[in-house]
Design a protein around this nucleic acid. Structure first.
Length: 414
RNA sequence: CGGGAGAUGUCAGAGUGGUCGAAUGUGCCGGUCUUGAAAACCGGUGAGGGUAAUACCUCCGGGGGUUCGAAUCCCCCUCUCCCGGCCA
């Protein structure tokens, strides 16, 4: 959630940023005026309430002293009518404030480049050169028809479209990658965590998937539970509503989980192959950080993911997202895009974001900052998306006969 | 899923209608003492809002109710523990 006091005090600056991120000015006007109205309504309610508390105390004293309490009671009774209506009004406005506020995206960082879409993202650097093939490289789904690693048809039979089955060396490769990624992350200081793949509504709200993106989530019927769309949710919310000591920061966490996404709105995109599935494996990094050094940690997370790709010998590029392409919770995001020779293009394989205080405010994650309690910064990033890494390995390590070599770094894992 | 008990500050644990945001112990921070440490003693120490700082408001699992007044009484929900059933 954005800081509403900041919005109020720096209204022009704040709205400029959010409008560039696609928020309507009217919505912000409305939110800001609701916020101010709420403060006034609350103050008015609290003043009356203070008066009532005072009179109630008197009531006790009067009774003890045997004085006549009838007039006092009448006074309180009348006051209570006023209080009740004031309270209801304040509560009503407060709910509206919340409703609006929870649907406002994060402020982009000042360093984020301008631009409206994916096309305006800025390439920072390329790492490793794409290999020259002496034949026309195939796409991964063509290769899987030859080597049998991915069974798309039976995935659809078991569940529905956008589900698939890994078999034989394909399944072993997935397992090897998960272990490789977790080991790499652990070597960088991340604690390995195994988490529930189902989280409740409060947690999804804490990281920003709810209330706005409920349509993108698989919900458990008759329960207040959802399949997680990313391990960012359980890992970040591990510290939901907690106050950490400054000396335990940063918390560096990593977990393997399957991720479940409805992919509502992406009909027709990447329908063929394993690029966009309802269920996919991912190893995630999360950092709960002191704002003082969260930028450093952000860069560390980017290099970690990039290093892993390099160790696998996968050519990739580092791209900074522009205003328009930033996700809801992100203040700044860097994507890693891996080269897919079959598709002849770079495709996203990792996305590293800092949300600054945005998630911390929603999830109430604080730390003892000297005398006072301050919000932490939360960061998350994939290291890496497993399904897409399998695709990348298949396409980059393919031979003319459709067989696929295993990268050197993975040999000890399979 | 059935039967019973419970949910209070870091933790443990008092508090059953009024001055209780809450005894006591413990933990933590600071001080005295000490060459240093321990022990002992003294002081401080929950969260959110509000304010220049105070006042002030809210919070004793969550929601609603009774009452002038609720941690305390009533209702609903959630969760935890014990017993039984089912089960990896």
């Amino acid at each position: 959630m954005i800081d509403l006091k900041y919005l109020e005090k720096n209204y022009e600056e704040a709205t400029d940023k959010l409008i560039k991120k696609g928020v309507d000015r009217e919505v912000l006007d409305k939110l800001n005026s609701l916020f101010i109205t709420h403060k006034e309504a609350l103050k008015s309610y609290e003043d009356s309430k203070a008066q009532q508390n005072q009179l109630s105390k008197q009531f006790g004293t009067y009774k003890k002293e045997g004085k006549d309490i009838a007039p006092l009671k009448q006074e309180i009774d009348e006051l209570k009518i006023v209080i009740n209506s004031k309270q209801e009004k304040a509560r009503e406005i407060s709910q509206q404030v919340e409703e609006y506020a929870l649907n406002i995206p994060n402020f982009p960082d000042d360093s984020v480049p301008n631009g409206e879409s994916e096309d305006d993202n800025v390439e920072l650097r390329k790492i490793l050169n794409p290999k020259e093939f002496s034949f026309k490289p195939k796409e991964h789904w063509e290769l899987s028809e030859i080597n049998g690693w991915i069974d798309f048809g039976r995935g659809v039979k078991l569940a529905k479209s956008r589900f698939s089955v890994l078999r034989g060396d394909g399944a072993r490769l997935e397992r090897a990658l998960i272990n490789f990624f977790l080991d790499e992350n652990r070597a960088k200081g991340f604690e390995e965590v195994a988490v529930p793949f189902i989280n409740n509504r409060d947690m999804l709200q804490g990281t920003g998937q709810l209330p706005k993106f409920e349509d993108d989530l698989f919900k458990i019927e008759d329960e207040n539970l959802f399949l997680i769309p990313t391990a960012e949710v359980p890992l970040t919310n591990l510290y939901n509503d907690e106050i950490l000591r400054a000396d335990e920061l940063p918390k560096l966490l990593t977990a393997y989980t399957p991720c479940f996404r409805k992919e509502a709105g992406s009909a027709g995109r990447d329908t063929r192959g394993m690029i966009r599935q309802h269920q996919f494996s991912k190893v995630e990094m999360v950092a709960i950080a002191n704002p003082q050094n969260s930028e450093e940690i952000f860069q560390m997370m980017v290099s970690n993911a990039s290093d892993i790709l390099s160790k696998l010998g996968l050519p990739h590029r580092v791209v900074e997202l522009c205003y328009g392409d930033l996700g809801f919770s992100a203040s700044k995001t860097i994507d890693l895009e891996v080269w897919l020779p079959g598709q002849n293009q770079y495709r996203e394989i990792s996305s590293i974001s800092t949300t600054k205080e945005f998630q911390a405010r929603r999830a109430k994650i604080r730390f003892k900052d000297g005398k006072k309690n301050s919000l932490v910064h939360t960061l998350n990033g994939s290291a890496l998306a497993v399904g897409r890494t399998i695709v990348a390995i298949m396409e980059n390590y393919q031979n003319e006969d459709g067989s696929v070599d295993i990268p050197e770094a993975l040999k000890k894992y399979m």
